[in-house]
Design a protein around this nucleic acid. Structure first.
Lengths: 257, 257
DNA sequence: CGTCTGCCTTTTGTAGACAGTAGTCCACCG
DNA sequence: CGGTGGACTACTGTCTACAAAAGGCAGACG
């Protein structure tokens, strides 16, 4: 039928040869996403080599990957730090994420590939299983995987790659103030909102998907961003103001319902 | 006025400490974009180290960057090749590029930042200067820089980064069949079409920009892609068909005018 | 007492070398 | 003559070691 089997999902290798670089990248990524390393923290090579048990060259390559993913920033002779996130950064991440979701839904929602739909179903099942667990930090990862699978419906590898990178940055932001535990609550609340998305996909309802996704973001997390925090740009200020307006609107509507 | 000076343009360092990794990445990128290395060609580390005069560690880091940019593909124990481009890849690159341009115009076109507008004006002047030169391979780079500056109007660093990466891949595709010189012709023709864009930006015409950009792509390059080439997906086939339809429509309209 | 300058430590950038694995070619056997 | 096994080659993955630069600290001078 199609010359390429499925450009997106065929990226995974069947037999994965463990590579120290890849392992180091994964470990480092996990340290950032779990909040062990907070934005602004210095990332010293020597310290990590003995912590991870790898030598510096593979670690440096891993740091290059993390840099491209936007999780750390490197300045030539000064070292690396976990990427600091300003309100403007959060604006960039969330707004671009939503735009990409819209594009993906437009491209992929009358699902044409059984393979991609199966992937989404698996992600949904995994998410529901994770939601039942106690405490459930796995909900966050599963939720992001579910959204990633939605974007994957488009069969657009580059679109999915960008979305994956943004999701990682988003998770880093949420790990930053997970201390407040607000993000976890958000995740559990959002988990309940995933079933309608799944149903809309099954029904092939493009407009419904687009509309639902547009109001699906981690809103309570976004609302926790102070308006007078440093690092705002005019764009981010206007964008956050819009989020606040929409959320108040939604709360008023729900109150009347 | 704003807490962050300008997140996009502040990325450039004032005093650039020369880093072998960065130099190697730039040289390697140039080799790919100029067509010295064609898609599918193997990228052997030892061969490049003696060609570029650097050692393997910085070269490997450079290759990691190029990999993230989508210009080369690395498979764990087999080595690296210049990213092969199928029609599906071209569909991905061009379609995402156009989507990003639309987003950027929506976000940035009533230009609020004098700095960003100045950057666009400089890019435009540079493009016009390059168009006057003989042969003018610099037109291609200047044209891409101009488009990048348009996207930069949004003040959205991540959006611009994605666009830059896609532009590099696009240039690689065009370098691939530059042998036919069709791409160069396209670039010169397109150069004339840049002035309206500049004027629309100055006028703050969002809809005009969006509409013009939607039909501004390297169409003659795209039309050179054979419909029966290997590596098509259902999505790419449908997309190319649409491009052909639109182009025929445009030619018929111009013929009547 | 404050500030500037020089040295020292820390950290990064780079080089060269070694080990392990995948692909390939040839020889041998059926 | 075809297929299979093994050895060889070449490449990648990783490590240790060295050099250079940036930042911190102490001491001396104004």
């Amino acid at each position: 039928m199609t010359a390429v089997p499925d450009p997106v999902s065929s990226a995974r290798r069947i037999a994965a040869p463990p590579s120290m670089s890849a392992l180091a990248a994964e470990a480092l990524r996990e340290m950032v996403l779990s909040g062990d390393l907070k934005p602004g923290d210095r990332v010293v090579e020597n310290r990590l080599t003995e912590a991870l048990g790898v030598s510096r060259p593979p670690l440096r390559e891993a740091m290059r990957v993390l840099e491209q993913e936007g999780l750390i920033v490197q300045t030539p002779r000064k070292g690396a730090v976990v990427a600091p996130v300003t309100p403007h950064d959060i604006y960039e991440i969330v707004s671009l994420r939503e735009e990409i979701e819209q594009i993906a839904v437009r491209l992929g929602v009358p699902v044409r590939s059984q393979e991609r739909l199966d992937r989404l179903r698996r992600a949904f099942a995994d998410l529901e299983a994770a939601a039942e667990e106690e405490g459930a930090p796995r909900v966050v990862a599963s939720s992001f995987a579910f959204h990633l699978a939605i974007v994957g419906l488009a069969g657009h590898r580059r679109l999915e790659d960008v979305y994956r990178s943004l999701s990682l940055q988003m998770r880093m932001c949420m790990a930053m103030n997970r201390r407040a535990r607000a993000a976890i609550e958000t995740a559990r609340q959002d988990a309940a909102r995933h079933r309608p998305l799944m149903e809309l996909v099954e029904a092939g309802d493009v407009d419904g998907m687009a509309h639902t996704l547009a109001h699906h973001g981690q809103r309570t997390f976004l609302l926790s961003i102070e308006d007078d925090a440093p690092g705002h740009s005019p764009e981010s200020r206007a964008w956050f103001a819009r989020i606040h307006r929409e959320e108040e609107e939604a709360m008023r509507r729900d109150g009347h319902a």
